[in-house]
Design a binder for these strands. Structure first.
Lengths: 137, 137
DNA sequence: TGTAATTGCTCTAGTGACTAGAGGTTCAAG
DNA sequence: CTTGAACCTCTAGTCACTAGAGCAATTACA
């Protein structure tokens, strides 16, 4: 039996976040002590670790809910789990490409300025004028 | 003189977003028509273009506020503008690296499974067990 | 000039995934 | 038995918008 603080430090999820997860139905409400404090059974460790890990990997709470349902039904085909993971991989790839473009753009902008004062600063000029941009963000 | 809809289509910023920008003090409240509708002078085009471009590049509203103040004072040194841009470049680089690691991790996880059912699905196993991970996300 | 369609107005609430704070209660150690 | 840390609930705030309700003004066309 753990208190919420012990659970928090074991799993690496903050105390208010654990209560938040309970409030949105991601984890079940645990039993309470006589003084109304949460007391967790060891099983919750696995579930919370799963959640934390999936969140670290950038999966949304909704996606995690789906995966948790799958996880609870060992006889179901796991295609859907792969589908969710692959969908997320696609999202990641798109985000990475976009950020790389922006990074290039910003590098180009900053390297272009040799002025001292704002009046002729190329960074500020470039921000005010979209036409000099290479990509179509 | 533009209506808010005309301004919106000229600059590519949605109408509610323009009103939102006004509400947080990013753009000045414009004059109104007799019927209380917003009427914009042409000057706002530049400012809103600046804002839109900076937002597209991922800068925060707070950073943009700073840049707009700089922009209005052509005699100030532009070091600060470069500082903001460079800070943002660092953030971008960090984010990109992190996403790439996650992408690798997720790829490794998904390629590792040749099961049909959830019971032995490596994707779900890996999500439940952090210890198999290469990076320390 | 009449009318219908479009565009505009304000206000409130919702999004995602938490985080912060107030004001109070319970628990564990000494 | 006391002290201080950890716990409780509840509300509100974060960021940068977005959605919707209910109504008013403007514009285009006949």
């Amino acid at each position: 039996m753990f208190s919420i603080g012990q659970l928090s430090s074991k799993v690496g999820v903050k105390v208010p976040t654990i209560r938040y997860y309970e409030s949105i139905g991601l984890i079940d409400p645990p039993h309470r002590s006589e003084g109304n404090q949460r007391r967790y059974e060891p099983e919750v460790l696995d579930r919370l670790t799963f959640i934390r890990h999936a969140r670290d990997l950038g999966l949304s709470i909704d996606a995690i809910k789906d995966l948790l349902i799958l996880n609870a039904n060992p006889d179901m085909p796991c295609d859907e789990a792969h589908l969710i993971a692959n969908q997320h991989l696609k999202d990641l790839a798109r985000k990475i490409t976009q950020l790389q473009q922006l990074s290039l753009e910003l590098t180009r902008i900053t390297q272009n300025c040799d002025s001292d004062t704002v009046g002729h600063c190329k960074v500020l000029e470039a921000l005010g004028d979209h036409s000099t941009c290479k990509s179509d963000h």
